[in-house]
Design a protein around this nucleic acid. Sequence first.
DNA 1: AAGCCTGTTCAGCCGTGGGCGAAACGTATG
DNA 2: CATACGTTTCGCCCACGGCTGAACAGGCTT
Lengths: 114, 114
Amino acid sequence: MDTPSGVPTGAPTGAPARDEPLWRDALGERLRCARRERGEKLSETAGRAGISPQYLSEMERGVKEPSSEMIAAVAGALDLSLAELTLAVAERLLSTQITACVGASARAAYALAA
Amino acid sequence: MDTPSGVPTGAPTGAPARDEPLWRDALGERLRCARRERGEKLSETAGRAGISPQYLSEMERGVKEPSSEMIAAVAGALDLSLAELTLAVAERLLSTQITACVGASARAAYALAA
DNA sequence: AAGCCTGTTCAGCCGTGGGCGAAACGTATG
DNA sequence: CATACGTTTCGCCCACGGCTGAACAGGCTT
């Protein structure tokens, strides 16, 4: 995967750049949250998902871009459907958006949550 | 990206496989829907997003797994935040989940929507 | 019939990165 | 010091992301 040369800083449209995380960051954060809620270790969830713990760690930290099959596998291991997972991601994104109007406070809130 | 050998047909967990589309399919469908709601052509949206129309077509059809930056670029071109986009995807997935209890009817409903 | 135009999909390609296993790191305990 | 455990980092191979050019399908005009 390549970062499009016209996109590194945001949408190349006339619209102002939206200050929100990338999909992989938002997704990973939610996955880690779900895993911790269950009191599980990387190795447990990853084992059930059929992937390596190392890779799950990278997914959770938004370091790697997981395939759709990987997302489904990890969601399944956490007893979540894709619908439930994406809804949880969306809700989290929306909650950080509300505070985004405050600017610097949004960044602080996001940093604290990470 | 590799398909994990233990995952091709669904979660390798003890949980029953959930009958729902993959992320890239659900996302692509929503992107195409948004573009069509705006009455735009592939070339228009793709141009604003800074990507090729051919690739946007592939994204919309779930043929390729777009990077998070690509998702952000296309969302921006459609005047959507990632939050709005993932929420729309989630809502759609949830609505098809409700009918999933009917089994074959869910598949028919999904095929018609595609 | 032909030609032209438009919108979309298909095919081929190259460089990048997904997902892995091994190693390293950080923390806790004796 | 040692050991154990959970997590992160590193190095690697090859599948695929994103591209360009070609092909396809539909509509319109002469």
